[in-house]
Design a binder for these strands. Structure first.
Lengths: 340, 340
DNA sequence: TTCTGCGATGTAAGCGCTTACAGCCAGGAG
DNA sequence: CTCCTGGCTGTAAGCGCTTACATCGCAGAA
């Protein structure tokens, strides 16, 4: 006679538990949540009935009565590379610890993003959104709706908390380091980028140091494949740059493969740097010089910021920037032995 | 205490829309959902009011009234490597197309898995669960609760649909191919494994062909790092195997790195194979011979199977196996030029 | 003209839960 | 012996929505 216990349709309800335990539904609720006093013997009866009927409170009923969903959302473009996945790991871990579920939404190759985001917004208490995954006016709408909102890797925006890693300074460090190796002609691989996004900031930082010596080059996506393709063209032609600064580790790994394919040695013939310090950067041959970005921490902090916004009644609209670190390996140029 | 927000985040309710449009809430609902007839002019008024008030129906209210959550869950151990992420991509895409949200739960390093899974089960219409992420009795409980359930990469289990990729046959193909290269002493890298899971099936297949010529070797995890560590020990010692069959591409990439570190040439000194055909397998040097597993398709089919279970009233409890394909590259041994 | 049929709309009953409030029943104080 | 107090429990009012059913006009049929 046990029906479904874990879902709305046809599930065991609190009324059945109450009847079985011989108490009222209020008592069942109090016994289960620990709100209000319940006599020991009564609690026993209730718990037994719950066990026997495999009762789990209907989430929809609870949400409606409590006025909260106990769920947070996160919107990202895709999950193909390590970057978004790592951020998601951090986000899910903290959100889960805070007693909320995580609802995901991927926007890549998705038509009705506006509708999907609205739908998502309607079932969460707060939302984390990666920059450039959602049209600006949709973000405006979210802000206007006063939904607790954290924008990740997005330029500071009034009305929403933003969280990102430091870009410009690290980009200058990369450029300076490369110039220290004696390189003179540079390419920055990673466009197209939108004003104010991470890649744009990196480009601005690089440009600030290298000026006209660096040329921006577009890639189709931030993947090994597109880095490879772009690099084949870039390195195969005349006027090959001495160093390629990539906006992303995966692109950089593609560049290294292309160089190898073209018979060029990295870093001797061409230096390469990446960004993010994904796992593969350490294992690549040569080891990829890159900028370490605290990906999981980004997700974790987004989750915590959201939590604060949610029960802090939306007062704190902070803009936080996490530190990054230049990780020098072998792909950027020869280093004295023992240096690491 | 009377709450500040009378409602689930979002604030504006169907009542306000109705008042503003000068109609009843029933009409608003009908106009929005397209159920029942609504005069053109009325619909206009309603839509305008909705627009002006930025109304989004409260999901909890809808769920309660409809008796469904319009959300499906997925439980995986972690999201670190490409495997689970790829499956998740396929799952999310299809689930989203079917008009449901995706709620995720990661179990790795999580204490109260039982509670978390129960909680999740209470807010979804169906659940996809990777094998070995959840204790057996919790699975039993889910089955008993009659929640639509798809077990991914799990041995067929009465009461739940299961979905996996073919393992044993492909494993035999790998073993046979390696033997064709003339290798004699093998190691299988990837334990510890549980009876009936993917890795166990692969091991059984390999063993069926190679018998005592293959020795199982444990790795701590399925990561590059642990493959690397395990291989350092395995290849550094005496009696080094001529071929290492890995249960996972990431482990295999770690083995290749370890071989390089030890000054061994792949495949000349030691052959290596992987499993999954992740992106990096193609880009590795040498290219990694592996078994292609349709990761996204696994997720997509899980989503579709779940959908069928949900509105098919749980009739179809299927056990499906997706085909895999041996992908021969250079890491398994020398091939005649122009071969593959 | 009266009646019928049907499109358009409103009314109200839930969906499963939480919780303010009221009621009840000891036992101790006065 | 009465009154009060405080612990325990029940009653019932929502939470925001969907939808069966009732109602109301109005057009076309008789």
């Amino acid at each position: 006679m046990d029906g479904r216990d874990a879902s709305v349709p046809g599930g065991v309800t609190i009324y059945e538990v109450a009847r079985r335990a011989g108490v009222s539904i209020a008592t069942v609720s109090r016994a289960l949540r620990g709100t209000g006093p319940v006599a020991g013997a009564t609690r026993e009866k209730v718990l037994r009935a719950v066990e026997e009927l495999r009762f789990t409170p209907s989430r929809a009923g609870v949400s409606l009565a409590e006025g909260r969903h106990a769920a947070n959302g996160i919107v990202f473009p895709n999950l193909s590379g390590p970057y978004f996945a790592e951020v998601l790991i951090g986000y899910e871990e903290v959100t889960s610890e805070l007693g909320r579920s995580v609802i995901i939404l991927s926007t890549k190759d998705r038509g009705p993003v506006r509708e999907l985001v609205r739908e998502l917004a309607g079932r969460v208490d707060g939302l984390a959104v990666f920059g450039s995954t959602v049209p600006g006016d949709v973000v405006d709408e979210l802000v206007a709706s006063r939904l607790p909102l954290v924008l990740i890797s997005h330029a500071p925006r009034p009305g929403a908390a933003t969280l990102r890693s430091e870009n410009a300074e690290a980009a200058r460090a990369v450029a300076t380091h490369l110039r220290g190796h004696g390189h003179r002609r540079f390419a920055f691989l990673g466009a197209p980028y939108a004003t104010g996004d991470d890649v744009d900031e990196r480009w601005q930082g690089v440009r600030a140091v290298l000026g006209d010596a660096v040329e921006p080059v577009a890639t189709a996506e931030y993947t090994v494949e597109s880095g490879y393709q772009a690099a084949l063209a870039l390195l195969g032609g005349a006027g090959r740059p001495e160093a390629v600064i990539c906006s992303d580790d995966e692109v950089a790994l593609g560049v290294i493969l292309a160089a190898e394919r073209l018979g060029l040695s990295v870093p001797h013939d061409v230096a390469v740097t990446g960004w993010d310090d994904i796992m593969a950067a350490r294992h690549a041959r040569p080891g990829l010089t890159t900028v370490r970005q605290p990906m999981r921490e980004l997700g974790a902090q987004a989750a915590r910021a959201l939590d604060r916004l949610i029960d802090g009644a939306g007062l704190e609209r902070s803009h936080r920037t996490l530190g990054t670190e230049l990780i020098v390996r072998d792909s950027c140029g020869p280093h004295p032995p023992g240096g690491h």
